[in-house]
Structure formats: C-alpha cells, structure tokens
Design a protein around this nucleic acid. Structure first.
Lengths: 206, 206
DNA sequence: CAACAATGTTGACGTTGACATCATTGTTGG
DNA sequence: CCAACAATGATGTCAACGTCAACATTGTTG
C-alpha cells in the first residue's frame, strides 16, 4: 500500500467524496457534512470538491441518488432469492426495506427530503420509481397466483409501499421506542397482507 | 403604523421567532433558515435569538415540538366532529394527517428528523406519542363497536399509523407525481380498513 | 430605590460555501 | 515529439453564518 504521498491528481476524487460523505452522514449526521472537511479528510484543497459538485446540494443529490440505486438493487436481489409464496416474497422485501432504512437512517432522510434541485429531482424520482415498479410487479405476480385480490396493481402497490415506507420511516427516526429493532414489523406485514388478500367468500347479498 | 419604532424589548421575541421561522421553513426550506436573518426580519440584533434558544438546533427542536402539538390538536378536533362509523372517523384522521403533511412538508420533515438533542427528543417523542395514542383509542373504540378485529390495539395502530404516515411522507416529499393532490389516498385508506376488518361476517348489531 | 434577573446590543472569532484566478497534469492532433 | 487543450487541483478572497463574551437597557421585587 504505497499510497502515493501527494499526487497532484487524486485519481477518483468524485467517488471518494461520495464514500466519505456517506460515512460522515452516518456517523455525524447531515448537519455535520462540510465540503471543506471532506476535502481535508481526503487531503485535497478546500475547493477541489467544487470540480465535481457544483454545489453542496449537488453532492447531496448524488448521495440520495446512489441511495435509491442501492436500495433498488437490494430489493432486486432479495426478490430473486426469497421464498415461493407471494406472502414470503413481500415480507422479504419489506424487511429489506426496513433494514436499509434503519441501517441508513440519515441517508433515507436525505433521499426523501423534498429539497432537491429540480433537475436532480427528476433522476431521483425516476430511480425511486424503478424500485417502486418492482413492488408493482411482485403484486401483479401475486394476483396471477391468486394470492392477491384483483384491482389496479399500481393502486395496491401504493398502499403497500406507504405502509412499508411509513414503518421504515418511523423506525429510522427513532419513534418506535419499546421492544427490539423490529418492534411491530410482523404485525404490520400481517396487516398489509390482510389488506391484499382476496375476499374469501364473495358477499352474495348484503 | 402603530408598531413602536424601537422598543428595546421586543415583547415576545421567542414566539415571534417561532412564527417567522416556520414561515421561512415553508417558503424557503430548512437549509435557508438562518438565525441572523430571523433576527433581521424581526428587527432585533443578530444575537438576540440566542437569549431564547441556546442553539440553532434548540429552535428547530421547538419548531418540531410545536408541529407535533398542532398536529395532535388537529387530530383531536377532527376526531370529535367526524362521522359516526369507525371507518369514517379513521378516514377523517388519515386525511387530516395527510393534509397537514402536504401543507407543512418541510415541517414534517423536521418533526421526524432523527437529529434532535436527546433532551428535546424526549419531549418530542412524548408529544408524538400523545398523537399516536389517539389512534389507539380510536381503534379500541372500533373494536368495541365490532368494526375492528380483536387484537392488541397498539399493534394494530402501529400498522395503521405506518400506512398513513408513509403515504403522508411520500406525498410531502413529492414522490406521488401523477394525479391530483391525493392521488391514491382512497385506495390506501380502503386497504387499511380491509386490514382492520374482522374476519368473516361482521355482526351487524350489538 | 437599589439590587437583580431578563432581555437586547455590540463586537469579535472561527467556520463555511462559493467564486475567481492560477498551477499541474493527461490527452490528442499536427 | 510536442504544442495546444481540457480536466483537475491549489490558492486566495469574500460574505454569511453560529456562537460567545462583554456591555446596555428594562422590568421587577425586596
């Protein structure tokens, strides 16, 4: 590891900034994120980050985007290797989402923070939408298997996504005080599944 | 212009700071909140806010707290004057919550932001809990009416609250692009109610 | 009315994000 | 091969910020 003492060019400052920024985000929170400190940590001048991110906000946008991309990848991976029934698959996705949220609380906050540059926001929403779309597919699959009631998969997904994201958001912000890390996740998932379940006996008359 | 030209004492600077801060929060976002600018706006010196909030964070904490208190009051008010059936009441609470969230997106973000001073965080969680508790009661009521399945009201509430808060959070952060302001709220509420509904045939009277 | 606490003012310090200007490097066409 | 050139980094500067300490003014209370 002959880390060259002082190469004039860093090599990949942009990526290094994102990595270090995320560490700082996790360790000290969004408020403690300073471009200058990042530069100091990486041994470059205080204005060097400006070459790669026009703004502090631009760095935050990039961070949020990478968060959505990673979360999407996690969901993809988990969807591929999780159980057979729809219920098990959905549960796996939900747990993955919540786990990401609690392991990256500050990042999640940033991802869903309303204040993004409009241009970056577009890319962000697109990435988030790709994640969302996976749940739509999952639910469509469940419908084909007869494990999910009929109806617009998008609409059903919105409700499911809201519940999962809501739980994750509450957990990430420390609003679920009592028990272990996943205090009422089982109940919440159960409830979601109940909302999706097909009617058992169609009410002939009422 | 009765406004006394330059009284040395402001009268109620603390309250004025909170009011103005919330306006700024709404108009220009959390990042654009500056103690010095607040002081300028209110015609006091740049250090005057320090007499009422030891920190910038202390002001943010107070802002978040007042947000929880107001949201709690809104829910109380709406619960008192909403329809008779459990379903209607729950729907009213959900719409109130979502409405608050979209009308105060930045404030909601702040309220559920993980970074509060531990002391303030306690008061915050307590206030949030009081709001939460109202839903617990509502659900208990629904159970007594036979409109909600049996089971720990706290657990059921967590699922309901997650779904409502999740939808609100998504809406507030601009992640629900397509239709009107309440794109899929109906569906989400329907889904929640379905998750709460008792098994099989509901006993019509009691 | 004399202390006193509460509140506001003034001035200063160190940090930050942003910008303009200059320096170094890697690349590429003649 | 080397002379432009674009990328990238360094340096210096600026205004704004949060925070603090020292001081001024006010209202209250013994």
């Amino acid at each position: 590891m002959q880390s060259a003492p002082h190469r004039y060019h860093h090599g990949d400052l942009r990526a290094a900034l994102l990595v270090r920024a995320e560490e700082t985000l996790r360790e000290k929170g969004r408020g403690a994120l300073s471009l200058r400190e990042l530069a100091r940590d990486l041994g470059v001048s205080h204005a060097a980050p400006g070459r790669h991110f026009k703004d502090k906000q631009a760095l935050l946008d990039a961070l949020a985007f990478s968060g959505f991309e990673r979360l999407g990848a996690l969901i993809t991976a988990c969807r591929e290797r999780s159980g057979e029934t729809f219920a098990r698959r959905l549960e796996a996705v939900a747990r993955t989402y919540v786990d990401f949220a609690t392991s990256n609380a500050e990042l999640l906050d940033l991802m869903y923070s309303a204040k993004h540059a409009p241009a970056a926001s577009e890319a962000l929403v697109a990435s988030a939408h790709r994640g969302h779309e996976q749940v739509v597919e999952l639910i469509g699959e469940g419908q084909r298997r007869g494990e999910v009631r009929p109806g617009s998969p998008e609409r059903l997904t919105l409700a499911v996504f809201s519940a999962v994201h809501g739980y994750a958001s509450l957990a990430a912000s420390g609003m679920l005080p009592p028990g272990g890390d996943e205090y009422g996740l089982d109940d919440t998932i159960t409830q979601i599944l109940r909302g999706l379940a097909p009617d058992r006996t169609p009410p002939a008359s009422s």
